[in-house]
Design a protein around this nucleic acid. Structure first.
Lengths: 226, 226
DNA sequence: TGCGATAATCGTACGGTGTACGATCCTTAG
DNA sequence: CTAAGGATCGTACACCGTACGATTATCGCA
């Protein structure tokens, strides 16, 4: 009778696709994507599970919407300035977003139709590349390669069981090195030992690879120009 | 009584972890990873669902094993020759394997402990790189970057709703272009139109990006040597 | 003002899931 | 031949996505 009487005469805020998606995103962030069930989602919205189906169609569509919401969080590149810094800022933003929502990358391979935020994102990136002088073909290459890089980084980040350099150093000699006897894995053993001693930070890999790719693309751009 | 009397006096082949994993892989390949349930898996092995738990612990462990089986399919690089061709052959093999088992990449982000095949794979790649003259640090960079590239390509391939160049061309003007009005998405529209007319094959992107990365790594290797 | 239509909500139910538990069988060592 | 141990499996439980129908709330129009 008064379960929804929040403060004062406030209405209980009606359900809407946006509210459902936002709650789903929050739930996936806090409890993991496997814990996202229609019942639990409804609970968080003071609604029954079946009420949600008036706003999302089915769970697949819910997941599609969640992924697109994640894409919407990525800062789009400006265009017209130094294309490398534009792409770098955009890629760093994308990496941060995918790290904040680690479940998103696990959903990506099964979502085959891009949402509006995804289209806007690709439009903006393509625009920046074309304005920097890339041909349609080369812009396509660059687009594919950069997406590839960002997705791959998200997959690797999600599959690593540590978060920062300190944790990694701890894990290397607690759990990794014991599994890497020098006789069976001489090279991995060598690497692990060396990395532990040089406080290696896997987060640096992202910027290293990104620069490598951007430089290579720039070389291609210049050589195609002449 | 005679359900397992195959040909002659053949015993029904006892269950084993390997047999369970192989059947699971076959089932995921043919019906998709979502259709892989313990009951159905048992059925294919003439066993009850609960019998499987004497060989795999739980479903997570089953998935871990399946992913490692996939890694085992990847051809390892030789070492000692031209490192770029070695890495190229290996990467192409990895791409093929992940394309044959599209569900594997969706599992990857959630599997945090590498299996033995995964370790062997990284050992072989690291060996090839070190023997080619890469330092430990640079071999780590290269390892990370190449893994990144392969995983990213698998994610993109899995999320694209077409298989080859012909299908793409068909889809571009049947479904993509109508969704990309030139006013809202001028650049994507331009790209889609241009690509359709030049029978663009997304499979070529893989070799383009791979060469770009290998060349860039070679440059780094040489400049660090001097 | 009242009424019909339309949309939103929700209770219940069905067939599926992973797996805990205990009973059963089958193999093998002594 | 028997005792013991592991492998197998039937049943049960809690949970899932969602089809279906009943119920309620909202709004346009006479």
């Amino acid at each position: 009778m008064e379960a929804d009487a929040g403060q004062g005469a406030g209405a209980p805020t009606p359900l809407s696709k946006e509210r459902v998606l936002r709650q789903a995103l929050a739930l996936a962030d806090s409890e993991g994507i496997d814990a996202l069930s229609m019942r639990k989602l409804g609970q968080g919205l003071n609604a029954g599970a079946m009420s949600l189906y008036h706003h999302v169609g089915n769970k697949e569509e819910l997941l599609d919407g969640m992924v697109d919401l994640v894409f919407a969080e990525i800062e789009l590149p400006e265009s017209g300035g130094d294309w490398q810094s534009e792409m770098r800022a955009w890629a760093v933003s994308a990496r941060g977003v995918l790290a904040r929502h680690p479940w998103a990358i696990t959903l990506m391979p099964s979502r085959t139709t891009p949402g509006p935020a995804n289209l806007r994102y690709h439009e903006a990136v393509t625009a920046a590349l074309r304005k920097a002088g890339f041909s349609v073909q080369m812009a396509t290459h660059a687009n594919w390669l950069l997406d590839n890089y960002i997705y791959g980084a998200a997959v690797q980040a999600a599959s690593l069981p540590f978060a920062d350099a300190g944790e990694l150093a701890d894990m290397i000699d607690d759990v990794f090195l014991p599994q890497l006897p020098a006789e069976e894995y001489p090279y991995l053993n060598e690497s692990a030992t060396a990395l532990m001693q040089s406080d290696y930070d896997p987060a640096d890999e992202f910027t290293y690879g990104l620069s490598l790719i951007l430089d290579a693309l720039e070389r291609d751009r210049l050589s195609a120009k002449s």
